[in-house]
């Protein structure tokens, strides 16, 4: 049943589900994601300098969306139409934040901590992209391996 023909670019567009339910799922996920981020900031408020908590929130959220998008849009392993609105757009979108990141960089620049500000700006971009890439690649490899495993017999598939 799952002939995974490589699809076209998975467009970050809306999945097919009634609009009201999608919005409700996005809102519920957004509330949870924002709360989780707030909780992390309450637990680890930091004290000026490099905003490590926001950094780790954003990087971990990027890793998780890499896994989620491969499982849903790319490979169709999870097909419920509300999974992506709830977990992707809602929870992970609400958990990670661009505004707090930009504001953190701006604060550091205004406080004449330009080096830390630039390091924070660049490190977040590099770590976030690295995380989403590694998580997506890892999930693809894992799915490919489990496919090969379930297809069964040894001695098969060593053609190349």
């Amino acid at each position: 049943m799952s002939e995974q023909a490589p699809r076209e670019l998975p467009e970050p567009g809306p999945p097919a589900a009634p609009q009201g339910r999608v919005l409700a799922a996005v809102a519920a996920g957004g509330a949870l994601g924002a709360l989780a981020r707030y909780g992390a900031l309450v637990l680890w408020p930091g004290g000026g300098g490099f905003p490590w908590t926001v950094f780790f929130v954003n990087v971990s959220g990027c890793a998780l969306i890499g896994v989620l998008m491969v499982l849903t849009v790319e490979r169709g392993r999870v097909t419920h139409p509300l999974v992506r609105p709830f977990l992707g757009v809602g929870v992970l979108g609400g958990f990670t934040t661009f505004s707090t990141y930009a504001s953190g960089v701006s604060d550091l620049l205004v406080r004449q901590e330009a080096l830390t500000g630039l390091a924070y700006a660049a490190a977040t971009v590099v770590a976030a992209l690295g995380a989403v890439w590694a998580a997506a690649a890892g999930t693809r490899t894992w799915l490919d391996r489990s496919d090969r495993g379930s297809r069964g017999s040894r001695g098969e598939g060593r053609a190349a």
């Binding site: 998975p10 924002a34 954003n58 998008m69 979108g93 609400g94 990670t96 934040t97 976030a128 989403v132």
Partner: peptide, 24 residues
Amino acid sequence: HALLATGLCGALTTYSTFSYETLR
């Protein structure tokens, strides 16, 4: 600040979708 900055602005903006779209 909790309602508008941490909640609204934080969730209106996203790093995860930004990075996934960049990866694609």
